[in-house]
Lab assay of single mutants.
Amino acid sequence: MASQGTKRSYEQMETDGERQNATEIRASVGKMIGGIGRFYIQMCTELKLSDYEGRLIQNSLTIERMVLSAFDERRNKYLEEHPSAGKDPKKTGGPIYRRVNGKWMRELILYDKEEIRRIWRQANNGDDATAGLTHMMIWHSNLNDATYQRTRALVRTGMDPRMCSLMQGSTLPRRSGAAGAAVKGVGTMVMELVRMIKRGINDRNFWRGENGRKTRIAYERMCNILKGKFQTAAQKAMMDQVRESRNPGNAEFEDLTFLARSALILRGSVAHKSCLPACVYGPAVASGYDFEREGYSLVGIDPFRLLQNSQVYSLIRPNENPAHKSQLVWMACHSAAFEDLRVLSFIKGTKVLPRGKLSTRGVQIASNENMETMESSTLELRSRYWAIRTRSGGNTNQQRASAGQISIQPTFSVQRNLPFDRTTIMAAFNGNTEGRTSDMRTEIIRMMESARPEDVSFQGRGVFELSDEKAASPIVPSFDMSNEGSYFFGDNAEEYDN
């Protein structure tokens, strides 16, 4: 783990906690998980779902989305002020799938948001429990990260689609708070800032007046979040320049895209947490497990152990491969979309394939898809080993990566060399080191050039047997250095459309 220093740990961010010791953190995270579980059980009762239907990941996603929508204050306010045809701002819903006479049927349900809020609060001892809501947002974000390569979004903001390893959390809503900021990748933060800068260039009043003052505060806050992700002084200094700019424009845009590229080699610290679907927490609570009393951590053995003992089902389209669908969801559960496939294969105990080789589309089923041909199958979400999630980018030494994705962002704290394609990355730096950030740029390029592919990161860190909950005997895996390590390699994943 990167030293926490003055930073709060993510469990504290996750639970809005002030400084807590490890036991208190485990208890408050457990409380959050228990609340999600209780809410899910109650919703299944309301909807009269069978046990099997309640364990269907598509039903879980609909129920999670309903509660997130019920608590989305800004959108609710907007919907009330701008009524649109056929949208009731006070209601929320989605597809629920039921097994009827041996076939899967889709039923569109509609609930009062007020009623959903009441059920959620009741499951969370009367609190709004925003930490639990954020947790579900991060699960949705991790699922998107594993399912889609955001080529269009990258290109629109002047970045290269091969930089997708920097895009963790790119679909997280803005209201996801400190826990959300911690899991956002460098590219995601750059993209958010670039969008602001572009608006400022096109709209003279963007930075002016009372609204402009708020915009400015948001801009500086985002700059500080991004600065905190960088691990070298030169990158941090460049972020200070971007933040202090009187009138952010093209120079800042250039600096930010430069920094994003540099992060492929001088990786930023991005938190990883295993956020599971509500249909995993519900049955665990129903079986009598007391998360608050037992304590829970999002970055240790607990999620692995929970998945070892969970039964989750998914709808499967006619030509999809259930094992591939399982891999997709497994990666999402562990926030591992940008991790090295060699490491993932070792931990999972079966070969993890790149996205383009998977015969599976996303987990969600569109409303126009034919239910007649839908089957369902068990998702295999178990693992051979477990490993500690990392909050750091690993040290800054790398190795060759593949054509589709030119770097990785480690999820697990496991000893290995970190793949990246130096030639491709360095070719993108057209040696432009003039301007006010020239000395920093020169320094950053120097550090990137001296990074050695064969150097090892996370020295001495290994994986653990599932029986080793105290992480007492690390097993340090050895990897084939020459092997392909990137998930979005030469990829044809669908595009994420909101």
Rank of each mutant, 00 (worst) to 15 (best):
D455P: 00
R391N: 05
V29A: 08
A284C: 00
E339V: 10
P83T: 12
G169L: 03
D439I: 06
P354D: 00
F258Q: 03
L381Q: 12
R150M: 11
W139M: 10
A123L: 04
E294F: 15
V463F: 12
M159L: 15
G288N: 10
R355C: 03
P83L: 10
K113I: 10
L193Q: 15
E320Q: 12
M66Y: 02
S170C: 11
S69C: 09
L307R: 03
F412R: 00
G393Q: 02
E454T: 09
K90T: 15
H140D: 06
F489E: 04
A493W: 12
L259E: 03
A366Q: 06
E375F: 02
D51P: 15
S165P: 15
A22M: 11
T423F: 14
I347F: 13
F304Y: 05
E46T: 04
V414P: 00
Y289H: 12
A387G: 15
D16T: 06
I217R: 07
L56M: 11
L79H: 12
H324K: 01
T424M: 04
M447R: 02
N395W: 00
D51W: 01
V270G: 04
G435L: 07
I425A: 04
K87Y: 05
G35A: 09
L61H: 03
F253M: 06
E375Y: 05
I33N: 10
P410V: 04
E369V: 11
P173H: 11
E294P: 00
M447T: 08
E107K: 10
T396V: 11
D112T: 10
R199C: 08
D72H: 14
R26S: 08
T23I: 10
M238S: 02
P322L: 06
M167A: 08
D468L: 07
R38D: 07
E210A: 09
T390F: 02
T6W: 05
L341I: 15
P322S: 15
A401Q: 12
S486E: 07
S84H: 07
P95F: 08
L466V: 10
I388K: 11
T45G: 02
R400S: 12
E449Q: 12
H135Q: 15
K273Q: 10
Y289K: 04
G126F: 00
M105V: 09
R121E: 01
I444K: 09
